[in-house]
C-alpha cells in the first residue's frame, strides 16, 4: 500500500495539539493563499498598470485595482519610444552565445574529470572545486580593468567572455557523467570509437536531462545579469534588458510614463516565466540541486 495514502487517511479525524484537523487544514490553506497573494500581486499590478492609459493612470490619486478600458498603447510606446527591441535582441544574443560557450567548456572539462586519466587529476579537481568559493564581487574588479584596458568596453566580447565560466556546472555534469557505466566506454573503445565521438554520441545523449538543466539555469542567469553589463556598457546599443529597464526608469520616456515602463517590464519578464512554465519540473529540480540566485 502506498505510504501517502495511508498517512493521509490516518491524519483524518486525528486531533493534533488540541486543534481540530479540519480547522488546521483550513488555516493552512488561508496562510498559503495569503503568501500566494503576496507573490502574485506584483505581477498582477504590473500587468494591470501596463494596460492602463497614461492619462487614466496619472489621474488616479487612489490607484484603482482594475481597469475597464485596457489599452495596448503602452506596449507600442515601449517598443517605439525606447529601443526595447534592441535590448531584447542584445540579451538573446548574449544569452545564447554565453550559454553555448559555457556548455562547450563544461562538457569537455566534465568529461576529462569523469572519464579520462591523467596525472594530478584529483588535485586539479579539488582546485576546481575550491574555485566555487570565490565570490564574483572579488574578481569583477580585475575583470573590469582587464576588459577596459583591452578596449573591449561596449562590445559583446567584453560582455560575454567573463560571464562564461561556471565551476558548479562542471561539477554537476561530472557527477552525472560518472554514473554512465564504464562498460559502455570499454565497448566503444573495442569498437574503435574515439573519445570525442563517444562523448557526443553516448555521454551527452545519456546525460541530456542534466545538460538541459544547466543550460536553462545558465540562460536564466544570463537573462537576468545586471552587474557586469552595467559596469562594462554605457552605450545604449549594448544594453541588456536589466540595464535597459534601469535606463528606462532613469531617463526613459522623457516624462515619467509608468504604464509604458510597466509594459516594458511585462515584456522583459515574460520569456523567463514562459520558460519556467514549460520546464517547471526540470528547473525546480536543478535549482534544488544547488542553483543559487546571483
Amino acid at each position: 500500500m502506498n505510504n501517502t495514502e495511508q498517512s493521509k487517511t490516518a491524519n483524518k479525524g486525528t486531533a493534533v495539539s488540541g486543534v481540530p484537523a479540519k480547522l488546521r487544514k483550513a488555516l493552512t490553506y488561508v496562510f498559503l493563499s495569503l503568501w500566494a497573494l503576496v507573490v502574485l500581486f506584483p505581477f498582477y499590478w504590473m500587468v494591470l498598470t501596463s494596460v492602463k492609459s497614461y492619462g487614466a493612470y496619472n489621474s488616479e490619486y487612489l490607484p484603482k485595482l482594475y481597469t475597464l478600458s485596457p489599452t495596448f498603447q503602452n506596449y507600442a510606446d515601449a517598443f517605439t519610444a525606447v529601443p526595447l527591441a534592441n535590448y531584447f535582441l542584445n540579451t538573446v544574443l548574449f544569452t545564447v552565445i554565453t550559454t553555448a560557450l559555457m556548455l562547450a567548456a563544461t562538457v569537455l572539462a566534465a568529461y576529462a574529470f569523469a572519464r579520462l586519466e591523467f596525472r594530478g587529476k584529483n588535485l586539479v579537481f579539488v582546485l576546481f572545486l575550491s574555485l566555487m568559493m570565490i565570490p564574483n564581487e572579488l574578481v569583477i574588479i580585475t575583470n573590469y580593468v582587464t576588459i577596459t584596458s583591452l578596449n573591449l568596453r561596449n562590445t559583446f566580447t567584453g560582455l560575454i567572455l567573463p560571464s562564461v565560466t561556471s565551476v558548479f556546472y562542471i561539477y554537476l555534469l561530472k557527477e552525472n557523467f560518472e554514473q554512465v557505466p564504464d562498460q559502455l566506454y570499454y565497448a566503444a573503445k573495442v569498437d574503435g570509437t574515439s573519445d570525442l565521438k563517444y562523448l557526443f554520441r553516448v555521454m551527452v545523449p545519456l546525460c541530456k536531462p542534466t545538460i538541459v538543466t544547466i543550460t536553462i539555469l545558465k540562460a536564466i542567469e544570463c537573462w537576468n545579469s545586471f552587474v557586469w553589463p552595467r559596469l562594462i556598457t554605457d552605450d545604449q546599443n549594448y544594453f541588456l534588458v536589466s540595464n535597459g529597464i534601469q535606463s528606462i526608469r532613469e531617463s526613459g520616456f522623457g516624462r515619467e510614463n509608468i504604464p509604458a515602463m510597466m509594459a516594458a517590464v511585462v515584456v522583459i519578464s515574460l520569456p523567463l516565466i514562459l520558460l519556467f512554465l514549460f520546464f517547471r519540473k526540470m528547473i525546480m529540480a536543478g535549482v534544488s540541486r544547488g542553483g543559487l540566485k546571483g
Binding site: 500500500m1 495511508q6 498517512s7 487517511t9 490516518a10 483524518k12 479525524g13
Partner: peptide, 13 residues
C-alpha cells in the same frame, strides 16, 4: 496484509 496491520495499530481507520 500491511493494510490489515495498519488497521490493527490504528494508522488506518
Amino acid at each position: 496484509k500491511s493494510t490489515a496491520l495498519n488497521l490493527l495499530c490504528g494508522l488506518l481507520k
